[in-house]
Every structure is written in structure tokens, then in C-alpha cells.
């Protein structure tokens, strides 16, 4: 067990929960060791917390909560770095930016998801080659879009049922 100070307060980290980012994260290339922290006050947002710099904690979210039809293709180079043999071991999270004076304008980075190989505890922030995604999707707009998509789906399947 390791006690570390973070922006969320002091937390205890088990050695087994330490995630290694061999290349760091863009902006924090020199920081390698992180932990993924759940805080019920901020659920569904989790925190990627640096174990080496107490000022670095990134709020992250499951991208499918924001964009139901999100898709990620992990390149062979990234799979290699992550030692990822089975994509089922990949945990995908996206970084959230919350403007201080207007949280309703919070954005999520769908272009550069953080991928964690949960079997090996190796992480990397990859940059996708996908024109559908950008670094700043407004969360409110994405959720509205997702709601419409789900509604459409429900209507379509309901229609099929009544016909059948």
C-alpha cells in the first residue's frame, strides 16, 4: 500500500492498481505512474491520478455514456505498446475538460482516448485516425445526439414488432 496526495485528497493505492504509462501523456510526458480512482461524488466521472505529481489528476469518462455509437480502432503500434493481445482487456476512457465559469460547456476528447490494458496495467493516450472525432465535443450536445439515436432505435424496433 502506498499513500499518496492528490487533488481529490489523500488516497491509498495498492501496488497492483498502479498503471504504467510508458510514454507518459501528452503534456505530462515525464509522468509514468497513474491510478484510476473512482469517487462517488463525481460518478460517472473517474480520475486518472498521477502518483508522481499531486497536481495532475485528469477527469475521464466512459465515452459510450456520451456517444452511444463511439468506435475505437487501436493501431498495431498502440497494441504493441499496450501489450494488448485481446481487445476485451482494453478499458477506454476519454478526458473531460470543464470550463470553470461554464460547466455546461464541458467537452470530451473523443479523438485521443486513454486506453488501459487492464490485464497488464499498461496505459496510453492514443490519437485516432478518424475524421468523425475531435478533441473537443461538447458533452451536452453529444448526449442530446445519443438520446435521439437511442429513441430512433426504440421506435424502429417497436415498429418492426408491431408489423411482425
Amino acid at each position: 500500500m502506498e499513500r499518496i496526495k492528490t487533488r481529490l485528497g489523500e488516497i491509498e493505492i495498492d501496488e497492483r492498481d498502479i498503471i504504467d504509462f510508458p510514454e507518459g501523456l501528452p503534456g505530462f510526458e515525464y509522468l509514468r505512474r497513474y491510478a484510476l480512482i473512482q469517487d462517488e461524488r463525481t460518478d460517472p466521472i473517474k480520475w486518472l491520478v498521477s502518483l508522481e505529481d499531486e497536481n495532475v489528476s485528469l477527469p475521464v469518462i466512459d465515452p459510450w455514456l456520451v456517444r452511444v455509437d463511439y468506435s475505437v480502432e487501436i493501431s498495431p503500434a498502440d497494441k504493441r505498446l499496450l501489450k494488448l493481445e485481446d481487445v476485451k482487456d482494453a478499458l477506454v476512457l476519454c478526458v473531460v475538460v470543464i470550463p470553470k465559469d461554464s460547466p455546461e460547456d464541458a467537452t470530451v476528447n473523443l479523438l485521443a482516448p486513454v486506453i488501459i490494458n487492464v490485464r497488464e496495467n499498461i496505459g496510453e493516450q492514443v490519437i485516432l485516425d478518424d475524421p468523425n472525432y475531435t478533441i473537443r465535443h461538447r458533452i451536452v450536445d453529444e448526449m442530446e445526439r445519443s438520446r435521439k439515436l437511442v429513441d430512433q432505435d426504440v421506435k424502429t424496433s417497436a415498429g418492426t414488432e408491431s408489423e411482425g
Binding site: 501528452p26 503534456g27 462517488e40 477527469p59 475538460v97 476528447n109 490519437i127
Partner: peptide, 30 residues
């Protein structure tokens, strides 16, 4: 420029506090 933009985004993300996230989802737990 894309790598730089991701960098910039990460640097901005890390200034968030628990209170900021509470403002986002307006959860009573906060």
C-alpha cells in the same frame, strides 16, 4: 498540431476539481 492540441486539452483538463465535476452533472451527492 493535433498532438499539441491534445497536450493543451490535457493541461486544461487537469485544473478540474471535484466541485467542477459536480457542476457538470448537478448530482445531489455533491
Amino acid at each position: 498540431e493535433i498532438y499539441e492540441a491534445v497536450r493543451e486539452d490535457n493541461l486544461q483538463a487537469t485544473s478540474a476539481t471535484v466541485e467542477d465535476v459536480c457542476g457538470l452533472f448537478k448530482k445531489s451527492k455533491c
